[in-house]
Design a protein around this nucleic acid. Sequence first.
DNA 1: CTTATTGTCCTAGTACTAATAGGACAATAA
DNA 2: TTATTGTCCTATTAGTACTAGGACAATAAG
Lengths: 136, 136
Amino acid sequence: MLFQIDLHSTKPVYQQLVDQVKQAIATNRLRAGDRLPPIRDLAAELCINRNTIAKVYSELEREGLLYSRAGQGSFVSDKGTELSNRVRREQLTERIDELLTQARLFSYTQEQIEELIRKRLDRYYRNTNAPQESKE
Amino acid sequence: MLFQIDLHSTKPVYQQLVDQVKQAIATNRLRAGDRLPPIRDLAAELCINRNTIAKVYSELEREGLLYSRAGQGSFVSDKGTELSNRVRREQLTERIDELLTQARLFSYTQEQIEELIRKRLDRYYRNTNAPQESKE
DNA sequence: CTTATTGTCCTAGTACTAATAGGACAATAA
DNA sequence: TTATTGTCCTATTAGTACTAGGACAATAAG
């Protein structure tokens, strides 16, 4: 299946899985109506407790990305994929503005912050899809 | 004093304070040789346990931003302000990297995130330069 | 209807971290 | 000496992450 966890990470297992499902939806590997693995199956596959998977699905349901039905399973909601473009852009815009605010607080000139951003961009996209495991 | 905490935050109290001291150093509100409040005094002022403050100072000492002497107090190290440029840059770099990670999670291409950043930069600095229509 | 599947709810327990609480101590300053 | 200060120590509380498994209702398949 698509999911894997790192038991040594400081990030909680359920959070790792929530992020992975979100990423799968963001990259269209999971689409509206797609069914996710049954809680017990995925738990067995990842060798973790079924309650941890239940927490993952219920968190995603709380955020509106999934819906779950007893006896049927858990599915990617229409909402999840429809709303995503606008929400994504808003979230990124907010992050950028916070960054620029802090740069100004630090008396960075426009040229300085542009230079730093350019540097990180170059570094980030040097190897296209390599997993950047920077810090933990 | 300069510090305040939010007991309802998910971020631990000691982490909030570590961040605030770093911010104060980065913005030169705290400079080399400046003395920080005694552990017991600051704890009383913030109504938290003195061990929590001790943890804050020892963490900052571990990072080289402070030095502590029994009977004297805790002080911003020379290194601390020498490093302030570096600290600022590190904080900005961290923000940029988080931004790029999220953009990638959202399946933004390098060109898309560059475009969004450029837009916010122009808006933020009311750019009077003639924008190069390189890749839009 | 019967049976298996599935998500949900529930209690109980373990492990870890954040934080509290306060005693004891050594270095320092007055 | 006496008070201040950071440090070290143990004990305790509270919350979160996770495990473990029982019980249940909705659903689907026979």
